[in-house]
Design a protein around this nucleic acid. Structure first.
Lengths: 215, 215
DNA sequence: AAATAAATTCAACACATGTTTAATTTATTT
DNA sequence: AAATAAATTAAACATGTGTTGAATTTATTT
């Protein structure tokens, strides 16, 4: 975070970096405060329990992201009026802010998304946190998609959203598996390359369920 | 695992269950051995380090899965000869064994896939383990896909595979977010519903890159 | 400048961590 | 049945865990 280097922010920055690499349980408060060059007791003083640090890490960037994404969604809906917004633009609005920040937002943002990738697939932590911070926005996007594909089965659309979510978050994970797999042809760090492909891929996936209930 | 209830298997079963719920770092050896009703020292005696327990958990089911999946792939290639195998059948061969076991294989298999979902998105653990156990198979599938889409850009195909991997593993995660999101309309436990939709979704995604370099 | 509040330090708490050791029991082989 | 190997137990190791309390420093207010 480029905010003032207060003790609180030093702790959050350090926690973010370490949580991204080793997960919530893989990081101790002493590791965090050491990384932040700060006394261990200050973590409790400023945040309370360890879980509260994690929540604070999640929250401070979620707000920024969600504001941007809703803005983009509203824009593309307005542009298309009175027609429904085109599907690929909705998908782009959903993903653009994320991939862009992950790509060009600096190390802090990269770590943040790596954490999201982890908890999205985590049985225990995934449920509450994602629901809390990102589900309201997901509902907005789903209703925009439904508006542009009114003939589709809502159940299908929910599952398509689910697939989108999985494909997107794996991209954030910071693993280099696709690079290994492709012998360096596809560096995972090249998030522009991802975005170019993710939007058409997901759009085509959704559209496979367009005509399902109309013929 | 339904094998003999040896001490080794008791430990692996307990570890599998707990790792699925709380991740590698979120589980202690004492929790595992308590769950297994076994002395803590036996974990070291039979496996060595904690990480070795984790590897053993991963390995014992990976072999079964990979054998099944390669079998299915070879079958659908053979059926299609001399033409290349149809894309949707390749995708099905890639996913069927996984979703089927996750669905009907019992609690152990469910836990196993939840672990895979976690480490797939985990920066530190994801790299080596997935590469070790699943990348060889991934390469086989990718070359089958390339054979049926010879005009496509390999780079595109790698990324499509990446999206497939993310969508698939999120499905295993055991989070109930899609159920919340859909107000119960889409229970995450209904893996038949997933599979019905995953294959056409992914197939359509791949096919979006079919004609890209031929016109 | 004095009084009050906020922030920081250092030490300690009680308990959990992974792993090892040596003694003992059980199983296998000769 | 004796000898050898394998498996299990209980105790302890040193170190790390999250968190707290009291003393001290720094900042803010009166």
């Amino acid at each position: 975070m480029s905010d003032k280097k207060t003790t609180k922010n030093l702790i959050l920055d350090a926690a973010e970096k370490l949580f991204a690499a080793r997960g919530f349980y893989g990081v101790s408060i002493r590791q965090i405060t050491t990384e932040a060059s700060v006394d261990p007791a200050l973590a409790s003083y400023h945040f309370g329990k360890k879980k509260d640090i994690f929540d604070a890490v999640m929250l401070r960037r979620a707000e920024i992201l969600n504001r941007e994404r809703i803005q983009m969604l509203d824009d593309c809906i307005r542009r298309a009026k009175p027609n429904p917004a085109p599907l690929n633009e909705i998908i782009d609005a959903f993903t653009h802010a994320l991939l862009n920040r992950s790509n060009k937002g600096g190390a802090g943002w990269k770590s943040y998304f790596a954490i999201i990738a982890q908890i999205n697939n985590h049985a225990e932590l995934g449920g509450e946190i994602m629901t809390q911070y990102f589900d309201p926005l997901a509902k907005k996007f789903l209703s925009a998609i439904h508006a542009t594909m009114p003939e589709s089965n809502p159940e299908d659309l929910y599952w398509c959203y689910h697939f989108l979510s999985g494909a997107l978050t794996l991209t954030f994970s910071g693993t280099d598996r696709i690079s290994n797999l492709s012998n360096g042809l596809c560096p995972a760090s090249d998030l522009d390359a991802v975005h170019e492909r993710l939007v058409p891929f997901i759009t085509a996936g959704f559209e496979a369920f367009k005509a399902k209930y109309s013929n």
